[in-house]
């Protein structure tokens, strides 16, 4: 897919990372270590700008997935969002994180909504999924705001720095997303 760029309002832009973003990405992660560590295994393995550069390069090299995108808030990098695609089941999975400073503005929900539009309208996926650790109340609230259905709990399905967490499985189907969007716009 081509490089993404979208102004999603309220001073927030979502766009694909370039290698030039590696220092800003590292600095943001480094400034949010305590905030990220409980949920994100990559907090621990991100030790230098070389690591964020390698991550961005791997995203740029990926033939299908759209994993490497930043969320810019008032001009500065504030978080990340990625879409991985399972071509075998024609489904996608969204993942995201946000710096503590920007919580509570609905930023992640709006970024996800834009990605779901791409997933269902442009990529013609049948289903979108989200996995959230059972204790990650904020992430689970995003799934609820997106109209996703809680479908199960994969026990110990998420690895984090100090063990494994139960993974709540959320899903939404193409027709459900369209109906929800139609209701919202009406």
């Amino acid at each position: 897919m081509n490089q993404l760029y979208q102004d999603i309002g309220d001073g927030v832009v979502v766009r694909s990372y370039t290698l030039d973003d590696a220092p800003a990405l590292y600095d943001l992660i480094d400034g949010n270590r305590d905030h990220l560590r409980p949920w994100m295994i990559w907090e621990k393995t991100t030790k230098s700008v070389d690591d964020t550069r390698m991550f961005i390069q791997s995203c740029l090299d990926a033939p299908v997935d759209i994993e490497g995108n930043g969320i810019w808030v008032d001009g500065a990098l504030g978080g990340g969002i990625g879409l991985s695609i399972d071509t075998l089941s024609n489904s996608g999975e969204i993942g995201y994180w946000l710096a503590k400073l920007h919580e509570g503005r609905g930023i992640v929900t709006r970024a996800c909504e834009w990605f779901f539009d791409i997933a269902f309208d442009e990529l013609r996926l049948h289903r979108m999924e989200l996995q959230a650790a059972s204790g990650n109340v904020r992430s689970r609230a995003v799934a609820g705001r997106l109209g996703m259905y809680e479908e199960g709990v994969a026990r110990d399905g998420i690895r984090v720095a100090d063990g494994y967490l139960d993974s709540v499985q959320y899903g939404i189907l193409e027709d459900e997303w369209r109906a929800r969007r139609h209701a919202r716009e009406a």
């Binding site: 075998l88 089941s89 024609n90 489904s91 049948h126 289903r127 999924e129 259905y149 479908e151 199960g152 709990v153 994969a154 026990r155 110990d156 399905g157 499985q169 899903g171 189907l173």
Partner: peptide
Amino acid sequence: EGVLRGAGKVGGGLYADLVIYG
């Protein structure tokens, strides 16, 4: 552990609900 709705692509361009076991 749950039922993932429409998560399985099957023959003929159809989709099936999948029970997840762990």
